[in-house]
Computed example of a mutant assay.
Amino acid sequence: MSFASIPPMLRRSRSVGAEVAAHLERLITSGELAAGDRLPAERELAASLHVSRASLREAMFELESKKLIERHQGRGSVVADISEDAAQLYENLSELDVEIANATELRDLVEPRIAQLAAVRAADSNLLSLEDVLARSQEDLGPAESLALDVEFHTLLAHAAQNPLLVTLCTMTTNWTRKTRELSHETAEGRRISVQGHRAIFEAVVARQPAPAGAAMERHLREIRAISTEHGHRRAPS
Rank of each mutant, 00 (worst) to 15 (best):
S2C: 02
P8N: 02
R11N: 01
E19Y: 00
V20L: 03
A21L: 01
A22H: 00
A22K: 00
R26M: 07
I28N: 06
S30F: 07
G31L: 06
L39P: 04
P40L: 05
P40D: 03
A41I: 12
A47N: 09
L49D: 01
H50N: 11
R53I: 15
A54S: 13
S55E: 08
S55T: 08
S55N: 12
E58P: 10
M60F: 09
M60I: 14
F61G: 12
E62Y: 09
L63S: 09
E64I: 08
K66V: 09
I69R: 04
R71E: 08
G74L: 07
R75V: 04
V78R: 13
V79C: 03
V79M: 05
A80R: 10
S83M: 04
E84A: 15
A86E: 05
A86V: 02
A87G: 12
E91L: 15
V98M: 11
E105G: 08
E105K: 07
V110E: 00
V110T: 00
A115V: 02
Q116F: 00
Q116V: 00
A119M: 01
V120K: 05
R121V: 02
L127G: 03
S129I: 04
E131I: 02
A135K: 12
E139D: 15
E139I: 13
D140I: 13
L141T: 12
L141Y: 14
A144H: 15
A144Y: 09
S146N: 09
L147R: 15
L147F: 13
A148S: 14
V151W: 04
E152G: 10
H154L: 04
T155M: 01
L156Q: 09
A158G: 00
A158K: 02
A160L: 01
A161Y: 01
Q162I: 02
P164M: 01
L165P: 05
T168M: 06
L169Y: 05
C170E: 06
T171L: 11
T173R: 00
T174C: 07
W176T: 07
W176D: 11
T177E: 02
R178D: 11
T180G: 14
E182M: 05
E182Y: 02
A188N: 06
E189V: 11
R191H: 08
I193D: 09
I193T: 10
S194N: 13
Q196E: 15
R199Y: 13
R199W: 11
I201V: 14
F202K: 11
F202W: 07
E203M: 06
V205L: 07
Q209A: 15
P210S: 05
A211W: 11
P212N: 10
P212D: 11
G214R: 03
A216P: 02
E218N: 06
R219E: 09
H220V: 00
E223Y: 07
A226I: 08
S228Q: 11
T229V: 14
E230K: 13
H231A: 14
R234D: 15
R235W: 13
A236D: 13
P237S: 14
S238G: 15
S238Y: 15
